[in-house]
Amino acid sequence: MGKVVVVTSGKGGVGKTTSTAALGAALAQTGKRVALVDFDVGLRNLDLIMGAERRVVFDLVNVTQGVAKLPQALIRDKRVDTLFLLPASQTRDKDALTEEGVADVISALREKFDYVFCDSPAGIERGAQLAMRYADDAVIVTNPEVSSVRDSDRIIGLLDSRTLKAERGESVNKHILVTRFDAARAARGEMLNINDVLEILSTPLLGIIPENQGVLRASNIGSPVTLSEPSNAAARAYIDAAKRLEGEDLPVVLPFQRQGFFDRLFGRRAA
């Protein structure tokens, strides 16, 4: 039985889709079977980030409605053959998804894959709640600034109340992934520092992804940064975060611009 991981944030534009692609690709490269499911019905992006936009035939809505079978809709990545994408529908809206339909698709994916990543839409409404509904784990993508942190706090509240696990009295394993972290700006006090973010959210840290041009470059060529530029600082941070998601106990390194000189261990362990 695979693990269902929702990538969520509340706030838009913080890097959910980029992180879904990067984490999923990093895990697939280690031989895990990984499915990436785009829940952003009506505003899909994951197909672009994965460079699969010209290969979409059927989508998540088609599968939930029984128009297409799951294997017909899954798109195999051309670079890593254990990586698959289930795209969202661009012509529909979030009301096209039903809870039962999503439940069936997720349980079918759980049988076939080691990891099922659900790329959540922004917001806290139906679409976001369906994306998190069947999750075992949650990656909460947060930028080091106050509005993003408060929205993440709100999302954690929903993860603790609206998911199937929460309703059964269990709890979703939650991890904070701080993205677009700029060490120089944090040092100048122009950004929240990591300790503030973690103190407010009181949730374990999965990783810190530095602000990096490579991430944008990768998005524009339709590739997860962990595949196109694996030695890039952001890609390495994603690869480490993926290992932590696997349960590896790696110390989190605070990313600095001048690597090697300022590199230092951050005295915190991911859970």
Binding site: I124, R150, R154, G157, D160, I200
Partner: peptide, 23 residues
């Protein structure tokens, strides 16, 4: 968490943890 509302009309409320902005 932000957005949560705890309503306890009779008696004290003790929270072992933080109370988020917007709650």
């Amino acid at each position: 968490r932000s957005g949560q509302s705890i309503f306890h009309p009779h008696g004290d409320v003790i929270v072992l943890g933080s109370v988020g902005s917007g709650s």
